[in-house]
Every structure is written in structure tokens, then in C-alpha cells.
Design a binder for these strands. Structure first.
Lengths: 251, 251
DNA sequence: TCTAACAGCTTGTATAGACAATTAAGTCAA
DNA sequence: TTGACTTAATTGTCTATACAAGCTGTTAGA
């Protein structure tokens, strides 16, 4: 609890969108942005409520609310008598938020990189047609993307996409945004299902993930709906030693 | 939004434990208890902040904090200009209902059998204490149960239990009911968390599950809470070839 | 009758002030 | 040196007040 205090309180609100929102919300956004961007590091001390009050000219209760909510959300840790500190990063992913691997990796403050291995337009086989709920020979796209976290392979993403719902899928630049981001734009997901299994990777997958032949992998098969239509079916393969799913239930 | 308002604000704090805690926390506990116990039904209107202020003699900001936090936690829904209402129950995924393996197997129309491998009373090690949120040397129970589906091993259940919350745990007959069933009886679970991973089994686990040394397993680590106390922490190990988790989200 | 304005309720946010509880660091005496 | 005490800083809570914003029913007026 003795790390140095973060600096530069004056420019806290720089670069934030100027939409009308409550002061406490602006403060939350500014602070969480500093943390997510890596400017404020774990265990560093955050200015005290009194300091923020003095430098921003707002009420202490307002600052208190912002800091308290950020604590509940896991960004900060507070100790009475000591101060407020940037929390250690959560090392796991929320089970129902494993949609956008890029965003998750960024949230952990790590570097995301992806390599497009395959992208093709095709006609649905019998199995693919069944997975997407379309007729055989219906137009689809197939893509395979390898995702890296800090230059270490973390996910193989095999995906088929219903071409009539996302006709421009094969014209996307997947280095700019993930397939999930594009698909959410053209046909917002309303429902989905997962199937989680432990499997052994095949030789190609071992090589792509840079793991041994006997390393177990966590396989997630996911289908997502927009209304009554299935947008896409994906198979996500993670090395067991580098990935875990986290879930929370109850009130 | 036209349902009748709940009644009986005077006895709101009846039957609550008289431990020293902030007013807002008492209020939260009292209200969430009413809802969990089914006394206040979904869509019913909760007394307004002003009414609670008048009948309990506390400040509106204190009431506001309690109601606001209960809204974040999903107990209440608030509408400016209208009032505060009891929320609909959250629908959670089948993935989060993998509690009672016996029930699941029965639901598939299969035969369930379980073998108690270990059941002992002990003092918590440092790691165990951390998992249960108790002090080192706090009284715990350890159990290991092997579950069969149609006479094929399907799950190794390793569990530690907080002895002060379930003092009779070691006197149960686990051929009659599962540990989950017993624990739900003595201390109803209110919250829980999972950690899902793909792992390799060790030699003993291979033998117990009757699988090869290189067969990947799905490991679920789960902790369940009753209020603020952790009842139990379990590690569930399933052969990858015989088990998969299913989940559904949205709607 | 229809419409516009208003009053009265609700929650949402912000402020100023007060005291309690916790911690660390300093002070002083034995 | 050690231990007890004091002091300052910080977060935690509570209160009283104020105004904004959203919804509903009523009322005044055309």
C-alpha cells in the first residue's frame, strides 16, 4: 500500500466525450479510462477524496459516490485511514462476455493481435446448414482467425456466417475490428447458446496455439441469434493453461 | 406499473439479526429479505423514499442509497416520476444450474450412483481458509465423492464445507441425498461463482474416472454464498469425452 | 370537447457539513 | 528501546437541503 500516487489531476477530463451526464459519471469514466489505458497502474495510489474535491471543485459526496462505485466494479480498492488504490487486474473473463476477445484482452491491459488465416465465401454443407438453420447450399462465409494476447496465442476462432444476414462479411478488415464487432453492427444479437467442453487439439491446432499434443483445450461452441435467424456459429478453442471462464450467479 | 404497493413498513426491521451495521445496509437487508421470502411480489410497488423517510425517521439520502444499490443488484426497478417496484426474477442460464448432478442424471432418464471416498472433519489450511473466507484453523469438513451415470464415472466432487454453517455435514448419508441437497437445506445459497477450465487429470483421477492419462477433463471450481458467508467450495472434475456444459443467454 | 398549462408526486443528482472508524506516524515518558 | 498516547489524514456514514427531471391527473380556457 505504499506505491506512489498518480499524477495530473488537472487534465482528468481531457479527451472525454462531451455528452451531458452527471458529474459522478464523468468522474467514473475518467478514472476507469486512466486505469484501462494503463496510465494508472495497479497498486498506485489514487488522489484522496479531499484532493479531488479541491482540484475539481465538486462536493465530496459526489467524489465518494464515483470512487465507491468504481470499487464495487473492481477498478479500485479502498482502505479506511490509508487511501484509494488501483486494483489488481482481474485475471479471468466473465462467462457471458467472451464475445469480444479483443475487448477482453484490452480490459486486462494487454496487447491484442489477430491473424486472419482463412476467409472464404461458400455454400453450406449439410452440417453447416443445420448449424445455421438454413437450407443446404445457402450462401455462407467461413473464417478462421488466430488471436494473440501479448504475442501468445490465446484463441482459435472458427466461424461460419449466414451470408444473407451479413453480406459484406468477406470485405471486412479484421485487423481493424473483430468479426463480433462487425456482426453486432449489421444484426444485433438477441439470443445465444454455448456448449463448453474439454477437448484435445489436433496437430494443426497444436501448432497454431503453440502447445503440446497432450495439452487440454477449452472448446466453446456458440451460436447467436438475431430474432429468429441464426447469424453465426463459432467454435472457439483456448489452451487450457492460458484461459479460464468465470461465471457468477444469484443476486 | 399499476400494481398495489406493499404494506407494513413499521415491522420492516423485525426478525433481522441485531449486528451493528450501517442504516443503509440494514434497510437493504430488510428489503431484499422481504423480496427473497416472497412477501413482496414482482411488480409490486415499494414505498417511496419520502414514505420510508417519514416512517423510519432516516435521511432521504440514506434511503436513496439503499434503493439505488438494490436496483444495481437487480432486486428493484426504479422509474423517475413513477416509483420503485420489485423486479422480475432474473432468468439465469442452464449453465449455472449444474449444481445437482443426481437431478441432472435423473432428468436424462439415467441411473445415478455415488460413492463416498472421503469424509473428514479438519481445520482449515491457509489455502482452504482463503477459499472459504474464514480464519486459518477454522473448522471445516472435507469430502470426496465419485458420481456415476449408468455405472460410468462422470464426476469427481471434491468439497470443503464451512463447519460453522453446516455443523452436521459429516453425519449425512450421501447415498440418500447429495451434499448439495443437504447444504441447500441448512443454508440456502444466495450467490455463487464458477471457474471453468480444461485440465489434465492426475494418476489417481484417471483411475477413479477410468480414463486414459491424456484425456482432457473439464474442471469447474465453484463457491457458493449464503448472504455474506461462504458455505462451501467445490472442485468438480468431468471427463471431457463424457460431459459438456450447456448455456443459453438473452431473452 | 379538446388542449394546454399547472400542480403534485416521484426519482436523480449535487452540495455542505458533521461525526465515526481506521491507520500511520510522530511524541513523550518510563 | 519500548510502550502509551496524540495527532493528522483518510475513508465511511448520515443528515438537511436544494433543484432538476419525469410522470400523472386536474384544471382552466378556447
Amino acid at each position: 500500500m505504499s506505491d506512489q500516487t498518480v499524477t495530473m489531476l488537472e487534465h482528468l477530463f481531457d479527451g472525454l466525450p462531451d455528452v451531458p451526464q452527471p458529474i459522478y459519471a464523468k468522474l467514473k469514466q475518467a478514472i476507469s479510462q486512466k486505469i484501462s489505458a494503463g496510465e494508472w497502474l495497479a497498486n498506485q495510489r489514487v488522489p484522496s477524496e479531499a484532493e479531488i474535491v479541491k482540484s475539481l471543485g465538486v462536493s465530496r459526496m459526489t467524489v465518494n459516490r464515483a470512487l465507491r462505485e468504481l470499487t464495487v466494479e473492481g477498478f479500485l480498492v479502498r482502505h479506511q485511514g490509508l487511501g484509494t488504490f488501483v486494483a489488481e487486474k482481474k485475471a479471468h473473463s466473465a462467462l457471458f462476455e467472451v464475445h469480444n476477445i479483443a475487448e477482453e484482452i484490452a480490459a486486462r491491459g494487454h496487447k491484442h493481435l489477430s491473424k486472419l488465416l482463412t476467409l472464404e465465401s461458400a455454400r453450406a454443407s449439410v452440417e453447416e446448414a443445420m448449424m445455421l438453420g438454413v437450407r443446404t447450399n445457402h450462401g455462407i462465409f467461413r473464417s478462421v482467425v488466430l488471436h494473440y494476447e501479448n504475442d501468445i496465442p490465446i484463441q482459435i476462432e472458427e466461424r461460419i456466417v449466414n451470408a444473407s444476414l451479413a453480406p459484406e462479411y468477406d470485405k471486412q478488415d479484421f485487423t481493424l475490428h473483430t468479426s463480433y464487432e462487425y456482426l453486432m453492427g449489421v444484426a444485433p444479437m438477441t439470443e445465444g447458446e454455448h456448449l463448453v467442453e474439454a477437448v484435445l487439439p489436433n496437430a494443426i491446432e497444436c501448432e497454431r496455439l503453440q502447445i503440446g499434443a497432450h495439452e487440454p483445450c477449452l472448446q466453446i461452441k456458440r451460436r447467436t441469434w438475431a430474432g429468429d435467424d441464426i447469424i453465426t456459429a463459432a467454435r472457439l478453442l483456448h489452451p487450457g493453461s492460458r484461459f479460464q471462464l468465470f461465471g457468477h450467479f444469484g443476486r
